[in-house]
């Protein structure tokens, strides 16, 4: 079976030109990363801060074009698409970021935030309200929330709205970048269950990025571990959890505080 998302030799290099000197220092934020995600599965991506998780996410959807390597989504190489093609392709993939407070415009009522996303997805004006209500229902909110501003919502509710907005264009692939890290423990569980339900219901494919190894262990079908921009571990979740190949992965799991001891 061909994977839904495939990444081949992806690298992202930043060059910082210093003001006074002519020299350029190249930072290899992501180096030669390859993986594939099968349709309707979840790949978990973990690593410490600065390991390149978010850079990889942005390069993957060509928000920042990769320095080299190829990304294919549903068999289509993104690099070959023009600007318009890329924009169209991006409807099929969405990123949900960690901080729901920063993701919603505080001056826009929820219906406009959702309406904008629906407009981008090509939904005709007269259908947008009904679709917005439908989106809110999907994430456990209701039509009464349409006229409110983001400040009226708790962190968990905001993240639900951000997820609803991400679903506006009926995407097939979501990149979830620390989607629950800023939420309370009991709210995290609500959002994780919601994401798992949506995945089943719509056959979605996820790249689930988190620094939390327990969470990655729980959600993932396959797991990748990034260290200094390199994918030092990659394989089916069971295998990575039971017999990690790299020393670094073992060190990470050992250092990670565990809630549930092995039974």
């Amino acid at each position: 079976m061909t994977p839904f998302v495939s990444v081949e030799g992806l690298s992202k290099t930043y060059t910082a030109r210093s003001l006074l000197r002519r020299s350029r220092a190249a930072t290899h934020a992501v180096r030669d990363v390859s993986f594939a995600i099968a349709r309707n599965t979840i790949m978990g991506l973990a690593g410490e801060s600065g390991s390149g998780k978010s850079t990889l996410a942005r390069a993957l959807v060509h928000l920042d074009p990769p320095s080299s390597g190829e990304v294919r989504v549903a068999g289509i190489p993104l690099a070959r698409l023009g600007r318009r093609g890329l924009r169209k392709a991006r409807r099929r993939m969405q990123i949900v970021f960690q901080d729901p407070h920063g993701a919603l415009n505080p001056r826009l009522r929820i219906k406009y935030s959702l309406g904008e996303a629906l407009a981008n997805a090509g939904v005709p004006r007269r259908e947008r309200r009904a679709r917005a209500v439908e989106l809110l229902r999907l994430v456990g909110l209701g039509p009464e929330h349409l006229d409110r501003y983001p400040r009226a919502f708790s962190g968990g509710q905001k993240q639900r709205i951000v997820i609803a907005r991400a679903l506006a264009g009926k995407p097939e692939f979501l990149i979830l970048d620390e989607p629950v890290s800023s939420l309370d423990v009991s709210i995290q569980a609500q959002i994780i269950n919601l994401l798992m339900d949506l995945k089943q219901r719509f056959g979605l494919t996820y790249l689930f990025i988190s620094h939390d190894l327990s969470l990655v262990s729980y959600v993932s079908d396959s797991i990748g571990i990034l260290q200094d921009g390199r994918l030092v571990e990659y394989g089916p979740a069971e295998q990575v959890l039971k017999q990690p190949r790299s020393e670094y992965t073992r060190a990470l799991f050992d250092a990670s505080p565990a809630m549930h001891r092995e039974r």
């Binding site: 708790s154 995290q188 994780i192």
Partner: peptide
């Protein structure tokens, strides 16, 4: 019970309804 872990794989997490 709402904390995710490898031991909970394949099962829905326990959820406390509502908010603090």
């Amino acid at each position: 019970r709402s904390v995710p872990s490898a031991a909970m794989r394949g099962r829905a997490l326990n959820v406390i309804p509502g908010t603090v």
